[in-house]
């Protein structure tokens, strides 16, 4: 298998800045095709930014982002929208269209990108909803769904066009244990059944490590570590170890950088 085929997504020397603050500095990440790859790291380290770079919603200040053999920063706006048909994204909030019911939300990508007859669209939508266990909710509006159900409907919509790459932005945040268990199972199941490449951005260690084939730990503008969950659990890198073991003491500070505490309290106001 050639390198191009082996990796669905490749970030080469990517840097990204927001204002004066560097989010990533010369980062290299390779996402193997057909596997579940997790990108982990503490809150605010730029994990969602990384997903937006892969989805070309943001342009890197430097470097290349290759998806299925296409260098995204070089594509035109029309080519980008065309390329995104190969991708599905599960947003943190679900991002369902609030003026459409569950059925129409899932049918939306099929209606805008295909010329399929209504009967076939109906069958596909029912199959996708069946896959996430919500075929019975097809008439409900998004505001009638719980948070976990919204995410499952969004997942059905994300797989409506059978994408090659599926990205999950913090899929486990705010989920009750049952919903979380369902999501964990679904991500693994969809990946294996559909043969897609899954990228999970999360800071929920146990759930993510249980389904990921490969892990990247990012933080401090860099990739701090990468490997299988077992390899990272036994990492020599103290930053990676602190994150993987969830210990409060270590190289990642509890306090945001600030002036001297005593000077702040007693200094000039």
């Amino acid at each position: 298998m050639s390198a191009e085929n082996k990796y669905a997504v490749e970030l080469k020397g990517v840097s990204f800045q927001r204002g004066d603050r560097a989010i990533f500095n010369n980062v290299d990440i390779r996402i193997p095709r057909g596997k579940v790859t997790a990108i982990m790291g503490p809150s605010g380290c730029g994990k969602t930014t990384l997903l937006r770079l892969i989805g070309a919603q943001l342009k890197p200040s430097r470097g290349e982002v290759w998806v299925n053999g296409l260098n995204l920063p070089k594509l035109s706006r029309a080519e980008l929208f065309d390329m995104r048909k190969q991708m599905g994204v599960l947003f943190q909030s679900g991002a369902l269209f609030t003026d459409l019911d569950v059925f129409e939300n899932v049918a939306f990508p099929l209606r805008v990108h295909t010329q399929l007859p209504d009967e076939m669209i109906r069958d596909i939508v029912l199959m996708k909803l069946q896959a996430v266990g919500l075929r019975g909710a097809l008439d409900l509006m998004p505001d009638e769904l719980s948070g976990g159900m919204k995410r499952r409907v969004a997942l059905a919509r994300a797989i409506a066009l059978d994408p090659q790459i599926l990205m999950y932005d913090e899929p486990f945040v705010g989920q009750d244990p049952i919903a979380m268990g369902v999501l964990v199972r679904l991500i693994r199941l969809l990946n294996d059944a559909l043969g897609i490449t899954s990228i999970v951005v999360s800071h929920d260690l146990a759930e993510t490590a249980s389904i990921a084939d490969y892990l990247y730990v990012v933080g401090d503008t860099q990739v701090l570590g990468q490997g299988t969950p077992e390899e990272l659990m036994n990492s020599e890198n103290p930053r990676v170890r602190q994150f993987m073991q969830g210990t409060p003491d270590g190289p990642v500070p509890f306090h945001f950088p600030a002036a001297n505490y005593r000077d702040d309290l007693l200094g000039e106001r």
């Binding site: 989805g55 995104r84 048909k85 947003f91």
Partner: peptide, 14 residues
Amino acid sequence: STEQLSSLAMIGVD
């Protein structure tokens, strides 16, 4: 704010 615009863009709809 509810990411519906981002979601549209990622579905391939401008």
